[in-house]
Design a protein around this nucleic acid. Structure first.
Lengths: 220, 220
DNA sequence: AAATATTTTTAGGCAAATCTAAATTATATT
DNA sequence: AATATAATTTAGATTTGCCTAAAAATATTT
């Protein structure tokens, strides 16, 4: 079960995994955008991935990870999220500055390293952005997370995830003190623009629709 | 000062650094051995490194790192040794199983990461094998280390480094409890085979000439 | 259903890092 | 000093991942 994948192959597999989350088969153009490369290059790579059994693919019909490819994607995501947790929890990175570095660290190939890192971190179940960390067999906790937009009034919840990794968003969240793990409660909604007053860790904050839509919470 | 080096280029620079430690100009064949590649490939790479200013080189005359190349080598070695320290100190790797993983980690490119890692580890001056860790400006402590073979009788010293990274050696050291940082004292020498009795952390151990020659100590 | 637009694939090339085989230069031996 | 041996370089290929331009397939309009 030795992962004989190049870094480029791993990146494609991860990108395909993320793109198929929201929908069906992944289009060549969508993958090209994601990988910041050209459609022709994507076709080349897909053919290689198919020949190695990581994806299912028929000409012009889009790609999909095979069973094997899905397992591999989960292994990569596990590494990525464990490293993100490490960077924030231990090295005191801001949680908005870890993505690029984790993107490099995720390609280090050592089973032993990842198992020891996992143990060192105390087997965390969620990364600093609230995304679940797959365990060594690829399973991850699916936590019932709802959009803050849909949280009923006067219901306590915990901030669990953000909908995007954009640094502008992460910066805003930090200044508003909307951190992962914070307790929130919606106190008032304004139907005009769907903005709302929420209480975060006892402190009242006014947030826009766009911001609320970017936040996922776990009702208590 | 953005390091625009490929992983292959970094590995060559590091190899040249190590090879020039013990001697003068580095021969193509020596580099080929070290890099487990063929002399023809080495020549190609050397020409590229020269064109980028990392090495000084004249046809048939051997290579040498330039000032710039030396600085780069020290940056890579700094990363390698910090990661080794992390793996042993925090993740509880055996100090004989960290080399390969550190070899991968050393290529992660993030100034911030390395500075934060250094701080997290408490700015260590020596790695788990006793080798000095360069600081962010490339300076490292040169500690007066002598070979255990040359340590006078009844003189306390601390084990600081090993002469090789061979796993057979590291395994033997572990079973004999000759760990980095242990206190040693030579109690008796046998001129027949240059073997000796030493006391390590209060415990008497008998070691061969070959083993003693592989150990470097810092007299107290 | 035909024409147009969009998406995807093919064809042919390029740079990096390696290889083998052959040529060249340096070193050692007689 | 001439020759033999060893070290090094050059020449020509290969693989990986990417590119551009053109062709083919699919989707959308009219």
């Amino acid at each position: 079960m030795i992962s004989n994948l190049t870094i480029a192959e791993e990146n494609y597999i991860k990108a395909i995994y993320h793109l198929q989350q929201s929908g069906e088969l992944v289009a060549t153009n969508a993958l090209a955008d994601q990988m910041r490369t050209k459609p022709a290059s994507v076709t080349d790579m897909i053919k290689k991935l198919k020949s190695k059994g990581w994806v299912d693919y028929e000409k012009y019909q889009g790609v999909q990870l095979s069973e094997l490819g899905t397992q591999e994607a989960l292994r990569i995501i596990r590494k990525h999220r464990l490293w993100e947790f490490f960077l924030v929890e231990k090295l005191k990175f801001g949680w908005d500055e870890v993505h690029e570095v984790a993107e490099e660290l995720e390609h280090i190939n050592s089973e032993l390293l990842i198992e020891k890192l996992d143990a060192y971190l105390g087997f965390p179940k969620f990364d600093p952005h609230g995304d679940p960390i797959p365990d060594s067999s690829g399973k991850m906790e699916v936590q019932l997370q709802i959009n803050l937009i849909d949280l009923p009034l006067d219901t306590k919840a915990v901030i669990k995830a953000v909908g995007s990794q954009k640094s502008e968003l992460l910066e805003l969240l930090r200044t508003k003190n909307l951190l992962m793990g914070s307790e929130v409660e919606v106190k008032q909604r304004y139907s005009f623009d769907h903005s709302m007053d929420v209480v975060v860790n006892g402190q009242s904050v006014y947030i826009s629709q766009q911001l609320a839509q970017a936040l996922f919470v776990y009702p208590l």
